[in-house]
Simulated assay, not measured.
Amino acid sequence: MKSYPFPHHVKDKERLLFWTQEQVLPFIGMCMVGIVTDMLTIFMIIGVAFGWAYSRYSDGKPDGYLLHKAYWMGLMPMKGRGFIYAYHRRILPK
């Protein structure tokens, strides 16, 4: 039987049973798409595959890697004074 670590600190990832939020969200999203399109079983299988693929992809990467990647590619614009436009790669002084 595989043992799972119990979160002891505030910074630890929240879990739903055995899975982290990042692993459960693709499954829940695909279930919603499956309910809307009336093909729940197929989209549940796709959701499990997406969750598994994401967990395999993010194992060696730091937390928030995909959010950073989406921001850097310009897919997730952020508001605020601390964020610059993602496509401005060089910042020159005034």
Rank of each mutant, 00 (worst) to 15 (best):
K2Y: 05
K2D: 11
S3N: 11
Y4H: 13
P5N: 11
P5R: 06
P5G: 11
P7S: 05
P7D: 10
H8P: 06
H8V: 05
H8D: 09
H9C: 09
H9F: 11
H9A: 06
V10W: 09
V10L: 13
V10N: 08
V10I: 09
D12C: 08
D12A: 07
E14M: 11
R15D: 06
R15Y: 07
R15K: 15
L16D: 14
L17H: 10
F18S: 13
F18E: 14
W19F: 15
Q21M: 14
E22F: 01
Q23E: 15
V24F: 04
V24N: 02
L25E: 03
L25M: 06
P26M: 01
P26H: 01
F27W: 02
I28V: 07
G29R: 00
G29A: 04
G29F: 01
M30S: 09
C31Y: 00
C31D: 01
M32A: 12
M32I: 13
M32W: 03
V33Y: 01
V33F: 02
V33G: 03
G34F: 00
G34K: 00
G34Q: 00
I35H: 03
I35Y: 11
I35L: 15
V36H: 09
T37S: 14
T37F: 04
D38I: 08
L40Y: 12
T41V: 14
F43P: 01
M44C: 15
M44Q: 13
I45S: 11
I45M: 10
I46D: 04
G47E: 00
G47Y: 00
V48H: 04
V48Q: 03
V48N: 02
A49L: 13
F50H: 10
F50V: 06
F50D: 06
G51S: 14
G51Y: 01
G51C: 01
G51K: 00
W52V: 11
W52Q: 04
W52R: 08
W52I: 07
A53H: 06
A53C: 11
Y54D: 07
Y54S: 10
Y54R: 09
S55K: 07
S55V: 00
S55M: 04
S55F: 01
S55L: 01
R56I: 05
Y57S: 13
S58N: 13
D59A: 15
D59E: 15
K61W: 03
P62S: 04
P62Q: 03
D63E: 10
D63H: 07
G64R: 03
Y65N: 01
Y65W: 10
L66N: 10
L66V: 08
L66P: 02
L67C: 06
H68L: 03
K69F: 04
K69Q: 06
A70W: 10
Y71E: 07
W72Y: 08
W72R: 12
W72Q: 08
W72V: 05
M73V: 07
G74N: 05
L75M: 14
L75P: 08
M76V: 09
P77I: 00
P77G: 03
P77E: 03
M78K: 15
K79Y: 11
R81T: 10
G82D: 12
G82C: 03
F83L: 01
F83D: 02
F83V: 04
Y85A: 08
Y85D: 11
H88S: 12
H88E: 14
H88T: 12
H88W: 14
R89K: 14
R89T: 10
R90Q: 11
R90D: 12
R90C: 14
L92W: 06
K94M: 04
K94R: 06
